[in-house]
Design a protein around this nucleic acid. Structure first.
Lengths: 336, 336
DNA sequence: CCTGTGCTTACAAACGTTTGCAAAACTATT
DNA sequence: AATAGTTTTGCAAACGTTTGTAAGCACAGG
């Protein structure tokens, strides 16, 4: 079917090893021969077989990526960055989604191992260390972005979640808010725990004790944000501001607030986390803590590549987060 | 490094072909032997090499997907569907993005061919037929979702763009709007042309002649929507409603409208296209024409698989679009 | 005791590359 | 003209599988 190196050899009257060398621009073959072979190859529409090459080279030039879902813009943007920088390094990306299920995640990792990817990147990997290790006999470099568990399980890239949560909350405090609610993410996600810690630290820095009534939980998606917000709105004394686990949650929270007839930010200030590309276009433009998505993706593949080249210097990195103030926050109407 | 079938053969004292058969549950090997071999394999942590298998089977169990960008929620959702149904059929997905550049798209296709993917799916493929064909010597099934060009170049899946544009516009007309603007997508995208046709047909059905002043163009992203909207707002007589090429554009348009102090839908009705998952959570919830994203993705892989199994019955399909009415549309204040 | 018949197992080729090493073809030197 | 040296080419093994075919073995029938 596909034309192989042997077909070219036959057509060009040389051995197929020569063809291989010619196409790889080896200095071992005479310039004219090289040229002739190349021409024949081009005429015949030759496309080398990456699978055969992978077999002998024991390199697939492939990075496996597993992510819970690609339909969250934050993940989509990180994956975009991964794909872009992988491409630049002549790697392709196999994408698998786990739906946030550790079982499926493990299955995905297994499949990637069978495919002999050169390295793997888990975005919000959700499996426990011990499970991961089992699969890890073929030592394939694996880096994890925003590890869900606290445990360190290999090379990881994190954002400064505590600092981000603190900044967000401090911003609200500085505006004069005192009843500041928090809609956390799923309790098993470590970054949610950290962001909440930052929130609590900020409150304490202002001499406020975190109020359990003001802390509720979403599912990291708009739906969860709506439900959480409805709970908060049902409180005898409503919060004047909210810090949300992520932008998707914030979007849900805002929706619920609007549905209840509130205005944002006049009646309620909202801060998100992630700074998805859509954040500036929301109504109102969302104040949020930016994660350096491009950099996270880029770093992850660089890390994999470094690991691949046997670099021992590779170290976990935690990148700074940055508060981006837009239109969803303002001082409370009545200064408490 | 990785344990191979030969290592197992040695450990289990059989030939490696027997190991292969045992692990593939061939009836040719005795039950006891099979069991013993499996045990050894499990103990040794054997993971079959998909690349070796691919080489001999001439099947990679891989589908290549090329998309302009994954950071548009519409694409992300389609790709999610593709990945899910591919997984269900035991296929993996190699994702590549072209950034909407035909050059890069071609390069991506080439790379996928080298990897010997079993089939390819282009989401909004942007290359011209003749360019594509060149690459197409190894006849790899290729299906295109929302082809950018009008030309038919292989199996394709489309949504009823004209009908969708018509429905959207009709909805606005029925509400009483008469000055209805349209923000189109990039002129080279065929679906934009069609949606605009639908828009014009609807107007004509109401005896209105499309007004060139009211038709402008975005870039299919929020930024373009903003700019287009600003142009429309500068018009001596503003439109009372807008039909946008897609939801991202609509989001931008709404942003610009808000920035100009307008209220939506009281001062301006807005309709989008795509029905991204976020649409119901926007402020106001966006009225939009839904594309059956899940089905489009699923159909695409089913089509590839059918083609792969030599099915001759495979036919292009155009799926229906469906208007979803939410909060961004209402009758105009002053009936014209 | 020999032969045919099933059931198991082993051998070997093939998939399409890369690459070490030997062989061949030149070139230059004596 | 022979030799050494250099460049160019070919041979063959290897990568880890699958699979067609041959071989081995036990057992039954003649």
């Amino acid at each position: 079917m596909a034309v192989s190196i042997k077909d070219i050899a036959r057509a060009a009257q040389v051995s197929y090893s020569t063809v291989s060398r010619a196409l790889n621009d080896s200095p071992l073959v005479k310039a004219e021969t090289k040229e002739r072979i190349r021409q024949v190859a081009a005429e015949m529409g030759y496309l080398p077989s990456a699978v055969a090459r992978s077999l002998v080279m024991r390199r697939t030039q492939t990075i496996g990526v597993v992510v819970s879902t690609i339909t969250d813009l934050f993940f989509a943007e990180v994956i975009h960055a991964i794909e872009e920088t992988a491409l630049r390094c002549r790697y392709n990306v196999i994408l698998t989604n786990s739906g946030g299920d550790p079982q499926r995640e493990l299955a995905a990792i297994r499949a990637l191992c069978e495919r002999r990817v050169d390295g793997m990147i888990l975005v919000s990997g959700c499996s426990r260390r011990k499970d991961l290790c089992a699969e890890h006999k073929l030592d394939i470099p694996m880096v994890i972005i925003n590890n869900v568990h606290q445990e360190h399980l290999g090379y990881s890239i994190e954002v400064d979640n505590i600092g981000g949560g603190r900044q967000a909350t401090l911003h609200l405090l500085e505006l004069g808010h005192r009843r500041i609610a928090h809609i956390a993410g799923p309790s098993r996600e470590w970054d949610s725990v950290e962001r909440q810690q930052g929130y609590e630290q900020a409150l304490q820095a202002y001499g406020l004790e975190p109020d359990p009534m003001l802390i509720t939980r979403g599912n990291s998606r708009p739906r969860g944000g709506i439900e959480a917000m409805e709970r908060l709105l049902a409180l005898p004394v409503r919060p004047t501001a909210i810090f949300c686990y992520n932008d998707a949650t914030a979007i849900g929270a805002m929706r619920a607030a609007y549905a209840a007839g509130l205005r944002i930010p006049q009646d309620l200030s909202v801060v998100g986390f992630d700074d998805i590309d859509l954040a500036p276009y929301l109504e109102p433009p969302l104040t949020t803590v930016a994660q350096p998505k491009r950099e996270m993706g880029a770093r992850a593949v660089e890390m994999v590549l470094a690991l691949l080249s046997g670099d021992q210097q590779v170290e976990d990195c935690v990148l700074p987060s940055r508060l981006v103030i837009r239109g969803s926050t303002m001082p409370p109407r009545i200064i408490v």
